Amino acid sequence: MFQSQLKSRAKMKRRQIIPGFGLTFGLSLSYLSLLVLIPLSMIFIYTSQLGWDGFLKQISQPLVLAAYRLSFTTALAASLINLVFGTLTAWVLVRYSFPGRKLIDGLLDLPFALPTSVAGITLATLYATNGWIGRLLPFKVSYTQTGIVIALILIGMPFVVRIVEPVLQNMEKEGEEASAVLGANRWQTLIHIVFPKIRAAAFSGFALAFSWALGEYGSVVFIAGNMPFKTESAPLVIMQKLEAFDYDGATSVALVLLIASFLILFLINFSQWLSKRKFADQ
């Protein structure tokens, strides 16, 4: 009897923590619909009016295909680099104490706060042939695909670090200690003990960085040079078509990027579901 009263009181307290669930849920759903669902659905609706042939005609233009190829390859290259060095950075920040650690940890969030156009201008100036860094390099960076990859590395760097970091912080060290006691070296411990635990988080960070880089415009427009078939990415093509009042072409190109982002989001959620299921089975 006493336990049932405690349970009923606990339920009442849980219900009273955030009063007005119906109202708050309705406002949240309206907010999400107005800012996300309705604008995105309009891209599908507007593009559907072109018909399948019209849509294929828009996205199969040589200039558009070259822009897709550039966007996907540079985003993939930047995300893979961030996957490796972002995971390494998270490991160093979590497992080691050294002077300036908090400063470095705070600077990692700078790409989130820094306007992307400022980042693009800064990179273009530094890596120009007469820039502080560009003059020291034996190859050209600004206004090339290499410069685009560097810009995408900058804006995507925090994703992997911030997702892998809390996983490493909550990871118990007993498994690593047991591996060392049993005679495993550091690489074996890293591959068989540590990596399986951070694999899902690292993949999520990689996917988010790739998705963000795929649609990046501000930091790329200044360092790319915007040369057709060479350094013109898909977001730049969208902006050019909008400036030319070619709304059919702009929405068609944007729809492909939107579908790619949805697929990436699905893969992230699916990987997290698999990770939770595997953890529950253990």
Rank of each mutant, 00 (worst) to 15 (best):
L6I: 07
L6C: 00
R9E: 12
A10K: 01
R14F: 13
I18D: 06
G20V: 07
G22L: 11
T24V: 12
T24H: 15
L27A: 06
S28P: 03
S28R: 03
S30W: 07
S30Q: 04
Y31P: 13
L32W: 09
L32H: 08
L35Y: 06
I38L: 15
S41P: 00
M42D: 05
T47E: 08
S48Y: 13
S48E: 07
Q49M: 08
G54L: 13
F55V: 04
Q58A: 15
I59D: 08
P62R: 13
L63N: 09
V64D: 09
L65G: 06
A66M: 00
R69M: 02
F72S: 01
T74I: 01
S79R: 01
S79T: 04
I81D: 06
F85E: 12
T87M: 15
L88R: 02
T89H: 07
A90G: 08
L93F: 11
Y96H: 13
Y96V: 09
S97L: 02
F98H: 03
R101C: 06
K102M: 14
I104N: 02
D105V: 00
G106H: 02
D109P: 05
F112Q: 01
P115E: 09
T116H: 13
I121M: 08
T122C: 11
A124C: 00
L126T: 00
L126Q: 05
A128T: 02
I133T: 04
R135Y: 08
P138M: 10
T144M: 15
Q145T: 11
I148M: 14
I150N: 08
L152C: 11
G156W: 05
P158V: 04
V161S: 06
R162F: 12
E165D: 13
P166C: 10
N170H: 12
M171Q: 09
E172L: 00
E172R: 09
E172Q: 09
E176Y: 05
E177R: 12
A178N: 13
S179R: 03
V181H: 11
V181A: 13
L182I: 06
A184C: 14
T189A: 05
L190C: 06
L190N: 05
I191T: 11
I191F: 14
V194P: 01
I198R: 06
R199H: 12
R199D: 09
R199A: 15
A200M: 14
A201H: 07
A202H: 09
A207M: 15
A207W: 03
S211E: 09
W212I: 10
L214N: 03
V220R: 00
A224I: 02
G225R: 10
M227H: 10
P228T: 11
P228G: 14
K230N: 11
K230L: 15
S233K: 01
S233N: 10
S233P: 02
P235N: 04
V237A: 12
I238Q: 03
Q240V: 00
L242H: 05
D248F: 05
A250H: 10
S252T: 04
A254N: 07
L257Q: 11
A260E: 05
S261Q: 06
F262E: 06
L265T: 10
N269W: 09
S271I: 10
R277C: 07
R277A: 14
F279E: 07
A280K: 13
D281V: 14
D281T: 04
